[in-house]
C-alpha cells in the first residue's frame, strides 16, 4: 500500500505539490489526469524518491521513502517506473536492457537474468526482438521494452509517467494494450496519462490534479459522468 500524507514539493520557490493526501491499495489501478504543469508527474518522482520532498511523507509498504535510513535502491525494486521518453539503454540489446538490473541490482546469475528478460520480453510481445538494439525498434516497441525492463525487477507497483505522450499516434495503441494487460493481471498501477479512454475503461479510480492540488478523486463514472469540481469539468470539456 502506498500512503501519501500532506506532501509538499518545491522547485526553488515554485510550489508544485501543495499538500497531497492519497492512499493506493494493493491491486488498484489509479489514473492521474490534469493539465501539464499540474504536478502529476512530480508526484510519481516523489513516490520512488527520484525527487526529494520538502514536507509530509510518502510511505510504501510501511517504509518511509524519504526517511534518512531508508535503502532507496532496495525500495525502488518494488516500484517499477516507465517514463515518457522511454529511456531504453541504446548501447545494449533488448535482452541486455532487461537483464541488466536483475543481474547487477538483484545479483541474479547471468543465465537466470537472461531467462527472466526473455520471458518478460515475450510477455510484452517482443519475443522476436531479443537481440535487436533499441535504435532498430519503433517508439512503441521501445516503450514496451521499458515496461518489460521494469517488470523484470518483479515490482509490486508500477508507475507510468505519461507513457504514451511521446509516441506517434499509431503506436499508442500497442502500449495501452500492454498496460491494460498488466491491469488485468492484478498489478497495482499509478498511471499519469492524457489518454482519457484508458483512464475511464481501465482504472478503478481517477484523480484530477489542478495547480499542485488534488482537486477530485473518485471512480471513473464520477469523474467522467458527474464531476464535483468546476475545474475538472472544464478540463474534461477541453480535452474532448
Amino acid at each position: 500500500m502506498i500512503e501519501i500524507r500532506d506532501l509538499h514539493k518545491y522547485f526553488g520557490t515554485l510550489h508544485v505539490l501543495k499538500g497531497i493526501n492519497l492512499d493506493v491499495q494493493k491491486g488498484e489501478v489509479l489514473s492521474v489526469i490534469g493539465a501539464s504543469g499540474s504536478g502529476k508527474s512530480t508526484l510519481l518522482y516523489c513516490i520512488n524518491g527520484l525527487e526529494p520532498i520538502q514536507d509530509g511523507k510518502v510511505v510504501v509498504d510501511e517504509t518511509d521513502v524519504h526517511a534518512k535510513g531508508t535503502d532507496i535502491n532496495k525500495l525502488r525494486q518494488k516500484l517499477g517506473m516507465v517514463f515518457q521518453q522511454w529511456n531504453s539503454f541504446p548501447h545494449l540489446t533488448a535482452l541486455e536492457n532487461v537483464a541488466l538490473a536483475p543481474r547487477i541490482v538483484k545479483g541474479k546469475s547471468k543465465a537466470d537474468a537472461r531467462d527472466i528478460a526473455a520471458q518478460q520480453l515475450s510477455h510484452v510481445g517482443l519475443g522476436e526482438k531479443l537481440d535487436a538494439y533499441p535504435g532498430a525498434l519503433s517508439g512503441g516497441q521501445q516503450q514496451r521494452l521499458a515496461i518489460a525492463r521494469a517488470l523484470a525487477m518483479e515490482p509490486e507497483y508500477m508507475l507510468f509517467d505519461e507513457a504514451t505522450s511521446a509516441l506517434d499516434p499509431e503506436l499508442v495503441g500497442e502500449v495501452l494494450e500492454t498496460m491494460r494487460m498488466l491491469a488485468e493481471e492484478g498489478m497495482t498501477m499509478i498511471c499519469v496519462t492524457h489518454e482519457m479512454g484508458f483512464a475511464r475503461d481501465v482504472s478503478d479510480r481517477v484523480a484530477f490534479f489542478h495547480q499542485g492540488v488534488m482537486e477530485e478523486i473518485g471512480p471513473p463514472e464520477q469523474i467522467f459522468g458527474n464531476a464535483q469540481s468546476e475545474h475538472t469539468r472544464k478540463f474534461l470539456a477541453n480535452v474532448r
Binding site: 520512488n48 527520484l50 535502491n73 525502488r76 525494486q77 517499477g80 541488466l100 541490482v105 521494469a150
Partner: peptide, 10 residues
C-alpha cells in the same frame, strides 16, 4: 538515462 537507471534500483 540516469533517472531510468536509478528507478530500477541501481
Amino acid at each position: 538515462q540516469l533517472r531510468a537507471s536509478r528507478s530500477l534500483g541501481m
